[in-house]
């Protein structure tokens, strides 16, 4: 057993887990935060994406013990004060989801992608960057639209703030 301690969405959490416990299972089962999904067992689908110390990672391919001491942000941590995050709002506006299973991972991947491209994104880049996120429903078209819209809005916001 390992004692793990980390910040999850700004809150300090701790627990005793088997060393083999995956981060995604720690989040879902120990913390009851079921927003992060598991869609495969081959590390390919991206439904489990969270941010670890500011970077998008697959929480199904990392032990909770590996993440101990880190800062984790999950889909539950995006909305502030009851307001959807701009990427969440864009997915709603552009109908970027159908069943919604892939959506938490898509949105966490999208936020990371936008953060890494502060100058903005084009369609080709968005499609290439979505390589690690699989959607069985939408055909990706509206997901790409939503990410482009959010990216445009967020970089315009950053330009105003500067």
């Amino acid at each position: 057993m390992s004692k793990v301690e980390m910040m999850v969405n700004g809150r300090k959490v701790a627990g005793e887990v088997e060393d083999r416990t995956l981060l995604v299972h720690f989040l879902r089962e120990n913390l009851g935060m079921t927003g992060t999904h598991v869609g495969c067992d081959t590390s390919q689908c991206g439904a489990c994406v969270v941010h670890l110390d500011g970077k998008a990672v697959k929480s199904c391919s990392m032990l909770a013990a590996q993440a101990s001491g880190s800062d984790v942000i999950t889909i539950e941590g995006l909305a502030a004060g009851g307001e959807l995050h701009p990427v969440q709002a864009a997915f709603k506006e552009h109908h970027g989801l159908q069943c919604g299973f892939c959506t938490p991972g898509m949105i966490m991947a999208a936020v990371d992608m936008i953060n890494r491209h502060p100058g903005g994104l084009d369609e080709k880049t968005v499609r290439a960057e979505l390589e690690g996120n699989i959607c069985r429903c939408t055909g990706y078209h509206n997901i790409v639209k939503a990410i482009l819209a959010a990216s445009g809005q967020m970089s315009a916001g950053a330009a105003r703030a500067a």
Binding site: V57, K58, G132
Partner: peptide, 9 residues
């Protein structure tokens, strides 16, 4: 290599 999440780790 792989995808952005794989490349981060």
């Amino acid at each position: 290599i792989g995808d952005p999440h794989v490349r981060h780790m």
